[in-house]
C-alpha cells in the first residue's frame, strides 16, 4: 500500500500552487497597473488613480470599438443560441441517418486551429462578396461559439429524465408543446450558461476578428492588439482590468447556474 508521506504531499501542494500562480499572476498584476496613473506600464505603479479609465472613455476609438464588440457579441450570442439549442435537441433526441457525422461537423471548430478557421473565413467571405463588417464578424464568431452552446445544451438535455418527455407525450402533448413546457424550462440554466460563454468568447475573440473585420468595424480586442504594435499604452491595462472583471462575473454567473442545476 502506498501512502504519501507528509513531505511528499507538501511538495505536490507547493508545485500545484506555483503553477496556479504562474498562470494567474500576470492577469492579477494587470489590475494594479490599470489603477496606476502612469503613462507607462510599470509594476508596481508609483501613483494610483482612475486616470487610465478616464482616458479609455475620452480617447477616440476605444468606446466605439467597445460598442462594436458589444453589438457583435450580442448578435453572436443570439444567433448561436437560436441555432445551437435546436441543433443540440435534434442531436440528442432525433433519430436520423448521419447524426454522428453532423455532430462531428458541428463540433469541428473546436478541433480546427482558430487561425485556420480565420483564414478560411477570410477567403470564403471574399469569394461570396460579403462586405458588411458586422455580418462578417458575427458569422465568424458564431463558428467559434456554436460548439460551446451545443455542448452545454447537450449536457443539459442529457440531464433531463426521458420519462418526463414520455409522460408528457402520453398525456397528449405535441412535440412543440413538450419542448416549450417541459424540455426548454428544464435546460434553461444550460442555455443561459452556453449563451454567457458565447458572449464572452465573442467579446474576447482576436484571431478570427483580425482576419474578417473591416476597417470601419474594429472590435475592442482587435484595436487593443493593433494599438500595442505602435505604442505600449497603459490604457490597455485599464481595459484588461475591465475585461478580467467581466470574465470573472460571467464565470461566477455560470458557476451559480450550474450549482442551481445540480441542486
Amino acid at each position: 500500500m502506498m501512502v504519501g508521506s507528509g513531505g511528499e504531499l507538501r511538495l505536490v501542494g507547493i508545485a500545484a500552487w506555483s503553477i496556479l500562480a504562474f498562470l494567474i499572476l500576470p492577469s492579477l498584476i494587470i489590475i494594479p497597473i490599470g489603477f496606476g496613473n502612469s503613462n507607462e506600464i510599470i509594476f508596481p505603479p508609483n501613483r494610483f488613480g482612475i486616470e487610465l479609465f478616464v482616458r479609455f472613455f475620452t480617447e477616440p476609438g476605444w468606446v466605439s470599438a467597445t460598442l462594436v464588440s458589444l453589438r457583435v457579441a450580442c448578435a453572436t450570442t443570439f444567433l448561436s443560441v437560436v441555432v445551437g439549442v435546436p441543433a443540440a435537441y435534434a442531436l440528442s433526441r432525433g433519430r436520423f441517418p448521419g447524426k454522428r457525422l453532423l455532430a462531428l461537423f458541428l463540433l469541428s471548430p473546436i478541433m480546427v486551429p482558430g487561425v485556420v478557421v480565420a483564414v478560411a473565413l477570410y477567403i470564403y467571405f471574399a469569394r461570396i462578396g460579403l462586405r458588411d463588417g458586422d455580418v462578417r464578424l458575427v458569422l465568424g464568431h458564431v463558428v467559434a461559439t456554436l460548439p460551446f452552446v451545443i455542448v452545454t445544451a447537450s449536457a443539459g438535455l442529457r440531464q433531463v429524465d426521458p420519462a418526463l418527455e414520455t409522460a408528457a407525450t402520453i398525456m397528449g402533448a405535441s412535440r412543440f408543446y413538450l419542448f416549450r413546457r417541459v424540455t426548454l424550462p428544464l435546460i434553461r440554466p444550460s442555455i443561459i450558461a452556453g449563451a454567457l460563454f458565447a458572449f464572452l468568447i465573442s467579446f474576447d475573440e482576436v484571431v478570427i476578428s483580425w482576419f474578417v473585420a473591416r476597417a470601419d468595424t474594429t472590435t475592442l480586442p482587435v484595436k487593443m492588439f493593433s494599438s500595442i504594435q505602435w505604442e505600449v499604452s497603459a490604457v490597455l491595462a485599464a481595459i484588461s482590468t475591465m475585461l478580467t472583471a467581466l470574465s470573472a462575473l460571467v464565470c461566477l454567473a455560470v458557476a451559480r447556474l450550474q450549482g442551481k442545476e445540480s441542486a
Binding site: A163, L164, T166, A167, A168, T169, I170, M171, P185
Partner: peptide, 20 residues
C-alpha cells in the same frame, strides 16, 4: 396512432413529475 392521440394515462416507476 401516436401515443399523444391514444387518450391513455400512464404511471411510471420514478413518478415522472415535472421538477420545475
Amino acid at each position: 396512432v401516436p401515443p399523444s392521440r391514444r387518450g391513455i394515462g400512464m404511471v411510471f416507476q420514478n413518478y415522472a413529475l415535472m421538477p420545475h
